[in-house]
Write a protein that binds this DNA or RNA. Structure first.
Lengths: 330, 330
DNA sequence: CTCGTTTACGTAAACGTTTACGTTCTCTAC
DNA sequence: GTAGAGAACGTAAACGTTTACGTAAACGAG
């Protein structure tokens, strides 16, 4: 069928061992035979079979990436970073869309194991309790990106969400806002949900502002839920001058809800996003947001997966654009 | 090291052939031994080695996907569709970010060949001439998505861009617009660039509107270029009441440029996008756009790759939202 | 000249499967 | 009672590599 190392060996009159050595840049052959073999390889169009290689040495040069939703800008950025690092190390990545609830995680885990990937990058929002054991069972290195497991054993690469949310909320407060609504991703999500809410609460407390539970709403990080929840808040006539959203998509949803009701941003309502994806940049007006350096986090995560190493906390930042304004003291 | 079929065979006292038959649901064993073997497999945590499997039978159940820019919403949607179809057929996909100019295409092609993928999905914008030969050299099935090759030999799944652009432009004309600017992706791009421009021109001609070359600009489909080119158009004082953009991102860029200059959309300027990605939905105001059914196209492309079959033309549609308005007859 | 070392190879055993081909046994039909 | 067929296995070759080990020749030192 296809051309094997044997064909090359036969054509050049050397043994397959020698061809293998040449292909792998090892030593033990003369320059003369090297040339002969290289030529034969070109001639025949020989391409080493990675399956056979992987079978004997155990380097498949492949890692699996689990994502809840490949089509989001969030996942895109992360994937881009991961891919870049992988490419530079000669790895390829297989992407697994686990579904928003992680329905297909188990299926993919067994497939990845069968394909003998060298490691797994987990960026699938929530990290369910039982998943830890399953993953341990695989005997594969794992690192989580932009999320973390309950156990301490699995390295993560992420922002300090609580502090980031604290900083974001504080920024709002420092601009004079006192009534700040919160749009979260569900408290059941212990990594992107709870910590951001806690950070928000911390900031209120630190500035002596009483929390108002009527101003907090939860969605699923997506555009639609942001629009819906902000709409409800507005329709209920809740009084707030600023809104902290747990994702850019939700923040843009908030922008839509505000516009539909004639509420002007930032004049009447300040909106702060989270992530700094392209959505923030493309929003109208451009969204002030808490940045997660997703591309860099993806790269880092890949590197720690391959080279080993512990958890890393990426630096967040506040990107000021045009959706937050200073409120005059009264 | 890891647990092999031999371990299972030893533990149950049968031969590896029998274990293999059971694992693969073939016939030739008693129910009794089946149970024994299944139990042993569970006990030991045996997981068949896909590399070895792939080596003997040649089914790797893997396909490669080449994309110019994984992080875009466009790629995301496509990828989502591809992934969904792949998953349902038990395939996994390795994604390859070829870079916006396709710089890394060659590298990836050789890697994919070595890994013995069963086929390649090409969604990398332009399809350079020499690529056809290279791909033929691989001896792998290929299908292009949302793009096509020069030769007729490679099946594609795409929208009829010329007709879609014709329809989009016609829609603008039917709403009373006579001065319509065009934002393209470069005429050198023979698939997404030229045909859309031709469709635009066709529509003008069909309605007896003279073309005005001062109203056509080219970018690279991305947000920034849309913003930049529209800005220039506006700054030059060009007179136009509508703008046809070759991508949603560019259209959103146009929205930004307009807003910065106090030009109101759609009151003073109508804007039409292309793709119908989430960007169109999230834009403010929500973008009227020419839809490409990217998710479905991804699925279809995967299916024709695996099952064989010829080129497919997906149906486009005009999605009316809020950026195009009717102009009153004067 | 001889001995030891290095260079340049070749041989063959693994790696973990699938599968063609045998073999044994049981059962049915006559 | 026997031939024949089918069920239930086992044996071993193949898939395409890498690599430990062996070996012959060349070479340098003494």
């Amino acid at each position: 069928m296809s051309i094997t190392i044997k064909d090359v060996a036969r054509k050049t009159g050397v043994s397959i061992a020698t061809v293998s050595r040449i292909v792998n840049n090892q030593s033990g052959y003369s320059e003369q035979t090297r040339k002969k073999v290289i030529m034969a390889i070109e001639d025949l169009g020989y391409s080493p079979n990675a399956l056979a290689r992987g079978l004997v040495g155990q380097a498949t040069r492949t890692v699996g990436v689990l994502l809840p939703n490949v089509s989001s800008l969030f996942a895109g950025k992360l994937l881009e970073g991961i891919e870049a690092a992988a490419q530079s190390e000669g790895y390829s990545i297989v992407v697994c869309n686990t579904g928003s609830e992680g329905e297909r995680t188990d299926d993919y885990l067994t497939i990845l194991k069968q394909k003998r990937v060298e490691g797994i990058l987990y960026a699938s929002g929530d990290f369910p309790k039982d998943l830890g054991e399953k993953i341990d069972g695989l005997g594969l290195p794992v690192v989580t990106v932009a999320t973390r497991s309950h156990e301490e054993t699995i390295p993560y690469v992420k922002v300090d969400d609580q502090t980031a949310a604290f900083d974001g909320t504080s920024c709002l407060i420092e601009k004079g806002h006192r009534s700040i609504a919160f749009l979260g991703g569900g408290l059941s999500d212990p990594v992107a949900g709870k910590p951001r809410f806690d950070g928000y609460l911390d900031a209120l407390k630190a500035h002596g502002i009483p929390r108002q539970d009527s101003l907090v709403r939860f969605g699923d990080f997506r555009f639609e839920s942001g629009k819906r929840e902000t709409g409800r808040l507005l329709d209920e006539g809740a009084a707030f001058t600023a809104l902290f959203a747990s994702s850019d998509e939700m923040a843009v949803g908030a922008l839509h809800a505000a516009r539909e009701r004639g509420v002007r941003v930032p004049e009447e309502l300040s909106v702060l996003g989270y992530d700094n994806t392209l959505a923030a940049e493309m929003a109208l007006p451009p969204l002030t947001t808490v940045e997660q350096p997703l591309h860099a986090m993806g790269e880092q995560a890949f590197r720690t997966l391959i080279n080993g190493g512990g958890s890393l906390t990426a630096k967040h930042a506040i990107i000021e654009r045009q959706t937050v304004r200073q409120i005059e003291e009264e």
